[in-house]
Design a protein around this nucleic acid. Structure first.
Lengths: 343, 343
DNA sequence: TTGTATGCGTTATCAC
DNA sequence: GTGATAACGCATACAA
């Protein structure tokens, strides 16, 4: 592989000149520049990104730590990050790591990324590493939380208004006449799930319905567990008229349980979910859901991050809260019972 | 940030010694080692991955180029790659790029990755860059194709037996009594789709059914287009008894079209798809599909790649063909018409 | 068992 | 408008 010296030699110039034509960092005589360009072309020269990183003390790598890329929400988020990087600084790239919500794994992954000298970190924190993370931000390391924030850690964050989103969709359920509304609570050490459940409870209370803790069923965030939890929901006596699922997994598990039990949705039981996904309208009935702007969250997160990296912004952290959309389809019963009203 | 010199100074040893204790690359007196370890600990020293890469001329980066991480197949594949990397060489990491099946984007992305000096490439080729890629492998650059191979490019590859997979599932349809079987052909410049359609035709022929080109409907690999294509399938006269969908998108589009038309599956029309996904059994009816070992493909691909990188294997390329699984659920009509026979 | 010194390929400072 | 050269932080060949 040709180096900058090879190019310099062939073009009869110094390495400095080659470097400057590559980077446009100072005026170069047109004829000289052309000689350099020719040499570059002939030698198929590509600059050595690693050497460059070392010299400029900027790796061009952004660490992105999520729980699972297999989750469509995170896949969209990552595409958003990638797209925005392309616009803002195409020389940068993502290093992606999955933690599966495991705090220990998260810690280890961050360690590796620090050794790789990532310029910054976008993190959907699993929770449990607050101390370490606080230390990081206090040393001014560029970091932004996404999807969930950690109250104890004062970093930038991009989240969604979980409370309002959950509240709206449960209000919708209530407007349709449902009263006995259960909830599936995904067990994650994340503030987001708590907020969703709390939005659910608020909606009930405002409608004069007393939240019944027995109607809140816990479920691990994994498809098998969610199926089992779904069966527990159906075993409630009497069976709920509607169910609010606090994330992807619980929705899928419940729907499967409903079909397995030979029940019909929304006739026998209505279902709504937090977090929409591309397949939602291939479902039968099509799923009514709270849709999160995952792609936009990724874009915003990376923008905040670059602002930190380039020190366009220092000091006080900023919290971005995007709003969700209520996507009314069929599983809530809306279309069937009375058309598609908006709450 | 502390450097190796800081550590050396604090421990009263040379940088060489520090380097050797970090890497375990030569014997060091126990007491000396302890001093070094203490210094490392006190200074919170982390070695500089970039400098290390430069010196060892090994970036520890693996380029992974796929069409879209949002596709569950690729998400699984990437998790497989990541998991195997963790085992084989935890110092390495993935740089992920999406091409959206765009050859120009693919070329550009590869260029960027080459500048970053990735140690190797795992690529689901979009097609169209055969010349460039051939050049790369001829210069012994480690590369392995995944999901699809390029006949003109002699690189290692990990694919699935598309023909057999498609054939089996269509045979299953035939065994259930379906005769008029349509197919949805995703338009991709990929050998995999061709192979699937050809498997479909073979199954028909072997059953004495003459493949009818009018029953093969084209669809772009995008959900909206697939929905429209699905409607075209339903508009065939007479309506097919069953449909074989050649990938994820076409399956989803068709199912949606069926529901929208008020038809019932499998009673009015049976559906099977190539490429299973985690949500398939939350569908109603649950989807019968050919399941690909995406995770394992990722593992195998990275293994092949590391063999190249470490020159454990040179020269002749190897082709790995994994087999698929037929997952019989409900959409084919099997359970409903006669229990769940295996073909 | 340990240390010295060179170079990996750049960028950037300083000099001309 | 151009060039010489000193870092960037590490691994390692060679010495001791």
């Amino acid at each position: 592989m040709a180096t900058i010296r090879d190019v310099a030699a062939r073009a009869n110039v110094s390495v400095a000149t080659v470097s400057h034509v590559m980077n446009g960092s100072r005026r170069v005589n047109d004829e000289t520049r052309q000689r350099v360009l020719d040499a570059i072309h002939h030698l198929k020269y590509r600059r050595h990104g690693i050497a460059r990183s070392l010299r400029r003390s900027k790796s061009g790598a952004i660490g992105v730590i999520i729980s699972d890329i297999t989750n469509p929400f995170f896949a969209d988020l990552v595409r958003g990050i990638e797209t925005a990087i392309q616009e803002i600084d195409p020389e940068s790239h993502i290093i992606l790591s999955n933690t599966d919500e495991d705090a220990a794994k998260e810690l280890q992954v961050i360690d590796v990324l620090m050794e790789k000298r990532v310029d910054g970190l976008i993190l959907a924190p699993a929770g449990g590493n607050e101390g370490f993370l606080s230390d990081l931000v206090s040393r001014a390391f560029p970091m932004v939380f996404v999807d969930r924030a950690l109250p104890q850690v004062d970093a930038d964050s991009v989240v969604v208004d979980n409370t309002v989103g959950a509240r709206r969709i449960v209000e919708h359920l209530i407007a349709l006449g449902h009263r006995r509304i259960a909830a599936m609570r995904a067990t994650l050490h994340a503030t987001s799930i708590d907020a969703r459940i709390s939005g659910y409870q608020t909606a009930l209370r405002e409608a004069g319905i007393k939240p019944d803790p027995r109607l809140v069923i816990e479920s691990a965030s994994e498809i098998g567990a969610a199926y089992a939890a779904g069966q527990r929901v159906l075993a409630l006596d009497p069976i709920p008229e509607a169910v609010f699922c606090s994330n992807n997994f619980t929705t899928l598990g419940l729907i499967r349980a409903i079909h397995a039990a030979g029940l019909r949705c929304p006739d026998d039981i209505a279902v709504v979910g937090f977090d929409d996904f591309p397949w939602a309208d291939s479902f039968h009935p099509q799923l009514t859901a709270v849709s999160q702007p995952a792609f936009a969250m990724g874009e915003d997160a990376i923008r905040l991050l670059f602002d930190r990296i380039n020190e366009r912004r220092t000091g006080k952290s900023v919290q971005l809260t995007l709003s969700t959309d209520l996507v009314v389809r069929e599983s809530c019963g809306a279309l069937i019972k009375r058309g598609a009203p908006t709450p």
